[in-house]
């Protein structure tokens, strides 16, 4: 029926654009970023910016002029940040908020999230190469090297969780995030199981690189490659990249929560618990890490990812397979 179809489409659009994707994720992401900057300042014995500073930055960027370099490929240059933003809004709508939001199975599952997670990095690479700047090109090559290094452990961690849930439910693998969350709601979080800790650690190691945070902010290092792919961006497109990174932070952290500790009450308290978890994970896993450790070189970072998170992810996968 056309009526049913349109209401379905509307609810999907609402999920992608307002809650939990788009607007909601953006607000949460900006507040997380503000908290992160404030705590980082406190850890360095500074006062730090106001909590809403990332929002002020966005509003400011929206009012600046957009400059496009002469040698840039203009349509691609301007489309790249939009592609990144849309992919992240979509990904946010795919990840359940335990007890509050269950994604429509029509939208997709863990594998789609995996693909969408790669899009912002690709958007950055396209942006870097389309800008025509040599710094952008360096950032592009670094982003690519880093992506090859961290995608392996990520894939293995996702498969570990999928297999664990699948085996527990009598099947082989379950790529449905809703299933994974529901299973943990009933049988306790995976984080309580010591055999899942290697996989969790590998996941923790994955998000500084994915979010572009020290010690793995090598592609966008402002003191070495002048913010790499973002060098030639100004005004609204740069603001879109900031939106993208705020959304990405929420998506990656929510994914971690959904995979490892989604237990939460239903309704409004569930949402509060989710936000609290996001805050704790962001402050402990991102802020403290980036304040404590300086930036690595690209070869060190790639080697690090090929050694430790890879080993941890393999150990996690082996543990799940042998225990089953």
């Amino acid at each position: 029926m056309p009526d049913m179809l349109s209401s379905d489409t509307l609810s999907l659009l609402f999920a992608v654009l307002v809650f939990p994707g788009g607007l909601f994720a953006l607000c949460v992401g900006l507040v997380l970023k503000g908290l992160d900057r404030r705590l980082a300042a406190r850890l360095q014995r500074r006062v730090g910016p106001p909590l809403l500073q990332p929002l002020f930055d966005l509003v400011k960027l929206a009012r600046k002029r957009t400059l496009v370099p002469d040698i840039a490929c203009k349509p691609v240059f301007l489309a790249a940040p939009m592609v990144g933003c849309v992919s992240m809004a979509l990904a946010a709508a795919l990840i359940p908020i335990p007890g509050v939001y269950d994604p429509d199975p029509l939208l997709g599952d863990l594998l789609v999230v995996l693909y969408l997670l790669a899009v912002p990095a690709v958007a950055l690479m396209i942006a870097g190469s389309a800008s025509g700047s040599s710094y952008g090109a360096i950032g592009f090559s670094r982003e690519m090297a880093l992506m090859l290094a961290y995608e392996g452990p990520l894939l293995m961690v996702l498969v570990t969780v999928a297999i664990k849930t699948g085996l527990a439910q009598g099947g082989v693998v379950t790529f449905s995030l809703s299933e994974i969350v529901r299973y943990q709601q009933e049988h306790g979080a995976y984080l309580a199981d010591p055999w899942m800790w290697p996989a969790f650690l590998a996941f923790l190691a994955f998000f500084p690189a994915n979010l572009g945070i020290a010690p793995f902010d090598i592609p966008e290092a402002e003191s070495e490659v002048l913010e790499g792919p973002l060098l030639e961006y100004s005004g609204p497109p740069l603001g879109l990249f900031k939106v993208m990174s705020a959304l990405k932070a929420v998506v990656v952290l929510s994914l971690g929560i959904a995979l490892f500790f989604p237990t939460a009450p239903a309704g409004a308290p569930g949402l509060l618990v989710h936000l609290l978890k996001l805050g704790v994970l962001s402050l402990a896993g991102v802020t403290v890490l980036r304040t404590a450790i300086g930036r690595m070189r690209i070869d060190q970072a790639v080697l690090f990812y090929l050694k430790w998170p890879e080993a941890l992810a393999i150990a996690g996968l082996a543990a799940v397979l042998t225990l089953a």
Partner: peptide, 9 residues
């Protein structure tokens, strides 16, 4: 402080 002149105010 920003690394690129295009981000500056």
């Amino acid at each position: 402080y920003c690394g690129s002149p295009k981000h500056a105010d």
